[in-house]
């Protein structure tokens, strides 16, 4: 990886070094796109100054789902069952409002077996940074097509995919997701800004990251190869993210940048690359995604953003304190309360 060294000091606002945010050594294939994403999760969490003990790292099953072990050793991992991390995350989020939940999934885990859970996670706007590491194949089972494989893409041994893919981004926008982004594991700068903005978002953030599988899907006839992704990566804007505590100090360049603020005061700025792109216009976003698809490009950036969308805590009223530490007196009905329930039954 050729990540530009961050200009931030060697310790973050909590006085922690980047080393404090690493995890165990990766056991994925050397050169795997997922490891490049892991590096940016570590960088973003460190730069944001996330409090490790208040972070969960949830995943299902698959190569991508192994990666929570490779970042944020001070946080709570849950490597659960195939496709269901979204359901686990929903329960965890409801039981503890104070957590920052990072969920790592793959295209098999999310777009096939776990589709039902994912769409309801989005619909309920559960506060989760959902990183979909998208390589178009099942790596752990040695290279079958997944539901995001493009029409015409081939497997190593020549099988051609003829079934149209599911696009996680247009699906998420359609379902009302308030933060929809696409990126590429080979574009660390953009991914870093997207991850930080997603961590500032209070609802569900869906990030589809094209992450080439170097072992099973990196050949010339694959549309999810590193080369093809690099050649067809079409960033819609240059992103800048400024966290709430730095807003005062950082001067956002005037000119053609759009800005959108998060509820905590953090700001994300969008500077057009070629054509103007309004990430707050849902219909325009859909149109742009469809148009780029026709041109076989990967439109990347924050494709749609609505930081104000009500979250699950609005739909399912929850208490502010974590349930696990609520004082007993509040959680257990005393004899009087039980008496009242029983009176109701008489």
């Amino acid at each position: 990886m050729t990540t530009a060294a961050p200009s931030a000091p060697a310790t973050n606002r909590l006085g922690l070094t980047k080393q404090d945010y690493v995890g165990s050594k990766s056991t994925l294939c050397p050169g795997c796109g997922h490891d490049a994403i892991t590096a940016q999760i570590i960088a973003a969490a460190w730069e944001m100054g996330l409090e490790g003990s208040k972070v969960t790292k949830l995943s299902g099953i698959g190569c991508s789902s192994k990666s929570p072990a490779y970042f944020l050793n001070q946080s709570w991992g849950f490597n659960s069952v195939h496709g269901r991390a979204a359901a686990i995350a929903t329960g965890t989020a409801l039981a503890n409002k104070t957590l920052k939940n990072i969920l790592v999934s793959g295209d098999g885990d999310s777009m096939s077996i776990g589709m039902g859970q994912l769409v309801h996670l989005i619909r309920r706007n559960v506060p989760v940074v959902y990183i979909l590491e998208d390589n178009g194949v099942y790596g752990l089972t040695k290279g079958q097509f997944s539901a995001t494989a493009d029409v015409g893409s081939t497997l190593k041994h020549g099988d051609v995919n003829e079934i149209p893919p599911i696009d996680p981004c247009s699906l998420a926008i359609e379902l009302g997701c308030g933060f929809v982004a696409r990126s590429f594991s080979g574009n660390p700068k953009q991914l870093n800004a997207i991850l930080k903005a997603a961590m500032a978002h209070t609802g569900c953030a869906i990030i589809d990251v094209i992450s080439p599988c170097v072992t099973f899907n990196n050949h010339d006839s694959s549309t999810k190869s590193y080369k093809n992704a690099k050649d067809h990566d079409y960033p819609v804007h240059d992103l800048g993210f400024v966290q709430y505590n730095e807003v005062e100090e950082v001067e956002i360049r005037a000119g053609d940048a759009r800005e959108v603020a998060f509820p905590d005061g953090s700001v994300v700025s969008f500077r057009a690359v070629k054509d103007d792109y309004d990430p707050t216009n849902k219909l325009a976003a859909m149109q742009a995604i469809h148009a780029s698809k026709a041109k076989q490009e990967f439109l990347t950036g924050i494709l749609y953003l609505d930081p104000q969308a009500p979250t699950i805590h609005h739909f399912c009223p929850t208490v502010d304190e974590p349930l696990a530490t609520l004082p007993q007196a509040r959680t257990q009905p005393g004899p009087e309360a039980l008496e009242r329930i029983m009176q109701g039954l008489m």
Partner: peptide, 17 residues
């Protein structure tokens, strides 16, 4: 949304303590 997610969320809440 389904039986699996129902128990999944309960597992998640138990994980949360």
């Amino acid at each position: 949304e389904d039986e699996i997610a129902g128990i999944g969320a309960a597992v998640g809440a138990s994980f949360a303590g």
